[in-house]
Amino acid sequence: MTVTSAQSRPLGGARQPGFGSVLASEWTKLRSVRSTWIIIVLTITLSIGFSALIALVQGVTFDDWGPQEQAVFDPLINSTSGLLFGLILLIVLGVISVTSEYSSGTIRTTFIATPKRLRVLAAKTLIVGLLGIIIAAIIMPAMIFVSQMIFGAYGMETVSAGDEGVMRLILSFIFAGGLIYTLIPLAIGFILRGAASAITLSIGLFFLPWMLAPLLPNWVQENIIRFLPDLAMDSLGGIIAADSAMYLSQTPAIVTILAWLVGSVAVAAFLLKRRDA
């Protein structure tokens, strides 16, 4: 391969870049690497696949369950068993949309092209958040639909879209879930700048409280745990019972979720402006 002689021609069509330019650029970055598509496909297939698998296991063994177990069987909650995989992968998507730039060093190229760093943060937030909502909008209804078909085939109790709580769960997981599971990790990615630490912290933030909550006194559940992002989403979606110490009613739950989103992105913005790239 040889280097040809340089011919620079006048740069026709160049214009002053604006926020739209940054949006287009960030979308190109995300879609031009295979890892993005692998994560999206895995998020969708693992969530739906595992939900179907667990539903199938429940269907096959249903006759062996005790009468009491059969009576308390909740066909809505039990159709989202695979969601855990999807949520972990949404965290990964949010984190690496940022940390892959720090590990490869392209973050400097990014800020050379767009020295107004908050535009980069805003564009990434918008694109990754929207992607989170779209993915959640695919997996939530699909998981529930597929599981209901399986439950129905085994003669178990089922729910349909019109039943109480179904749309509430779907909508709150699409909007609150699609946003908090991508954008809080994205902000943590900007704060910590490393994939491993950012994913660990995000998973800790979202999943640890669930494991620890039963061990903690009521006071902690009421004053701390229920204000964590995942718990607020579960209150909003109706997964946490209204009589639980960890329950938040609708408006405070929405405010809590928005505060987490705005707060984490604001910390990222503050550090991004202040630190050397």
């Binding site: 740069l11 069509g13 002053q16 870049p17 330019s21 650029s25 190109t28 031009s32 190229t109 767009t114």
Partner: peptide, 13 residues
């Protein structure tokens, strides 16, 4: 391409 887009530079460049 992503750099050109961010910088307002046409794709042919």
């Amino acid at each position: 391409l992503w750099q050109a887009q961010a910088a307002g530079i046409p794709k042919h460049r």
